[in-house]
């Protein structure tokens, strides 16, 4: 954003060995506890103005990652370094000034807006909390933000139920922008929308990034859309990142068998291409994160699993060109 300031670090966010475990009541009387290892040791960084895509199937822990980064959840272990400062164990008070620098856009535009507040109140709320503005200045800024997300000023006095899904998602974006964030965590921001509306929201997110230099963590399960919007993509499976690469590279040369299967599962809207494509159909479902398989977590569904996969847990290794993969086949 402020290119003149030398103090702004090029890396907005760095996540090191992040873990988030949830205790879950088990047993007939709920007296036992079992641990769900939703996120189990992941590391990555996001540079300023970049979009990192985070993909994986439901239950792989991608939403939890977004929520630990924004400190909606407390991390179990590991660190979240935001603008060079470890925020993973800051007190609520110490964290407060940083909160406005990272905002979220949620999946369901029907559930994430308070139905009793007007659009103006919704968009102004983060400013009331974080910015020392007068009521008039706030009002002006709400109008600016509405214009930025292509809503008109007369929308300000309306309530969320008067809007369509795509418009509501734009209200959510305006609210996220209100406190002048550097990082926006987009958690499945378009999956509840129709295809024609998805393109509107994605184009808008890209325009905003160009104009305001915002950094995105884009969490989604739609690989075609993630490829379209991201500079780099991380693939998660059962709480771990199995592969991370620049987006074109990941799609051209997927190395991990899971990534290969995931990519081949996406149908391409072209009957001739579809007729000739070779597909890898994974058998079975994702195992439970309570008791994940030993060694490589993907081995139970992997067609190329070896005996060693049950024993050694593969680490993310560099495969050249910023491409890293966690698989024994590539060690």
């Amino acid at each position: 954003m402020n290119a003149g300031e030398g103090a702004v670090p090029a890396t907005v966010l760095e996540v090191k060995n992040l873990k988030k475990h949830f205790a879950m009541k088990a047993g007939l009387w709920g007296s036992d506890y079992r641990t769900v290892k939703a996120v189990d040791g992941i590391s990555f960084h996001i540079s300023r103005g970049e979009t990192l895509g985070l993909v994986g199937e439901s239950g792989c822990g991608k939403t939890t990652v977004g929520r630990v980064i924004t400190r909606i959840y407390e991390p179990t272990a590991g660190s979240v370094i935001f603008n060079g400062r470890d925020i993973s164990h800051l007190s609520e008070q110490a964290l407060f000034p940083t909160r406005r620098r990272m905002q979220m856009i949620f999946q369901d535009p029907y559930a994430s807006l308070n139905p009793r507040m007007t659009v103006e109140e919704i968009v102004a709320e983060p400013m009331e909390v974080h910015l020392p503005l007068s009521a008039n200045e706030r009002r002006e800024r709400v109008m600016e933000l509405l214009e930025l997300v292509r809503l008109s000023p007369e929308h300000a006095t309306r309530f969320p139920h008067e809007f369509s899904g795509g418009q509501r998602q734009r209200i959510g974006v305006a609210r996220a922008l209100a406190a002048e964030p550097e990082l926006i965590v987009c958690d499945e921001p378009i999956s509840a929308l129709d295809v024609s509306i998805q393109a509107q929201v994605v184009n808008m997110l890209q325009d905003l990034q160009e104009r305001l230099g915002i950094t995105y963590l884009f969490i989604a399960h739609d690989l075609s859309m993630v490829k379209h919007i991201s500079n780099r993509v991380a693939v998660m499976y059962l709480g771990k990142i199995v592969e991370l690469a620049p987006s074109v590279e990941l799609y051209d040369r997927p190395l991990h068998p899971y990534t290969q299967a995931l990519l081949s599962a996406i149908p391409i809207p072209d009957p001739d291409v579809e007729a000739e494509r070779r597909r890898i159909i994974l058998q079975g479902d994702v195992p439970s994160p309570i008791d994940p398989p030993s060694g490589c977590r993907f081995r139970t569904r992997c067609s190329r699993a070896m005996p060693a996969c049950a024993e050694t847990e593969p680490e993310l290794k560099d495969a050249g060109g910023g491409h890293t993969v966690a698989c024994l086949l590539h060690e």
């Binding site: 295809v195 998805q198 393109a199 184009n203 690989l223 809207p269």
Partner: peptide, 20 residues
Amino acid sequence: GLLAAVPRLDTREKKRLVPI
């Protein structure tokens, strides 16, 4: 519009999506 609004997995260049 429907065909142009979705990105394709098998293209290399990133064209802007065309929303309806």
